[in-house]
Design a protein around this nucleic acid. Sequence first.
DNA 1: ATTCTTCCATACGCAACCGTATGGATTGCG
DNA 2: CGCAATCCATACGGTTGCGTATGGAAGAAT
Lengths: 189, 189
Amino acid sequence: MAKPEPTRQQLDRTAWIKAALDILAEKGVDGIRVEVLAKRLKVTKGSFYWHFKDRRDLLDAVLGTWKDGRIRDIQKQTRAQPGEELPRAFHVIEVYSANRNRKGMLIEIAMRDWARRDAAAAAVVEEVDAARLEFGRRGFEARGMAPLEASSRSLLLYAYVFGLSLMSCGKFDADMAEMKRWIADRIAR
Amino acid sequence: MAKPEPTRQQLDRTAWIKAALDILAEKGVDGIRVEVLAKRLKVTKGSFYWHFKDRRDLLDAVLGTWKDGRIRDIQKQTRAQPGEELPRAFHVIEVYSANRNRKGMLIEIAMRDWARRDAAAAAVVEEVDAARLEFGRRGFEARGMAPLEASSRSLLLYAYVFGLSLMSCGKFDADMAEMKRWIADRIAR
DNA sequence: ATTCTTCCATACGCAACCGTATGGATTGCG
DNA sequence: CGCAATCCATACGGTTGCGTATGGAAGAAT
């Protein structure tokens, strides 16, 4: 048995953080309420205040785990396919602008909305953004572009991807798929 | 006297809506609380519930005024300088990605965050976005571009502009100004 | 078995809000 | 003046959520 798993299901910090991330995607930061989380986890506040000092403690933990996950994602991609920079750029656009990874994008937006009002969140978002921009920049530079052009394309790529995610472009055009292809070319090619 | 202005300052709906828009920019939708607005306007809830049925009534009014303003802005620009499509595209990028118009951008983001959870807000945002995309599309088409390219550039333009606004690109690069110029060229030229 | 530690339930006080009810003040009008 | 409409203050009950205090159950240690 690799998992000694106690018979009585015990909650730990990660369970609360996971639930908090769910609500963050659904309702934003202001939706993260300890009594609401408790109800969702079928326990009471007593459990929460055992694992966390207060609500702020949970929020900081959420920030930490989100940041670690994003940074890890980047490092994973960096190690994955060296020398495949162009398809990788398209892959980024695909993943982030698709409807899969929907929850991830919702968290992205909620995170940035949060960052507007919270210094700690702002710091985390800035760190993640910097890592992503740097990752993109290196990809373009590896294809022989000048530093300015590489940085610019990287910024354009991520700004476009996040901007698209908060435009409800439902019925703007039926040829959305073609448009996205055109745009991806314009950004990465 | 063009303004019969009653001696005792009376509040009307527009005063509440204006205050609500201020808070929307600062704290998001969830920050719009009638008792908070009342305190800011130096009155009590009694006044609010005279002018509005309930909180939802105010929120709908906020949506309406914001939508009207954005649509009016577009129409104004459309009439303004016909035949100046390229500088107009640059102007859009300038205005929306600058630090002036800061409050406007904050409202834009808050609005889109709101739209994720509220059907009425989603409808308004979609309408405004559609109008803007159409405006941009016509501009590019007027320069002789094919429909697909024009639509794509328009979408890229607005997605980039809104995406940039929610990236805290503080210290990514000192050459931000140059990068923005490079990107503007890539989108509009 | 007894004690100790871990983890959660229950109960409480406090604050922020929502919406209603009702009365008071000011203004326009007959 | 007197009356009615307009606009706001005050007071109240109800809900939701935070944080604390305290007790209880289950397993681990001795």
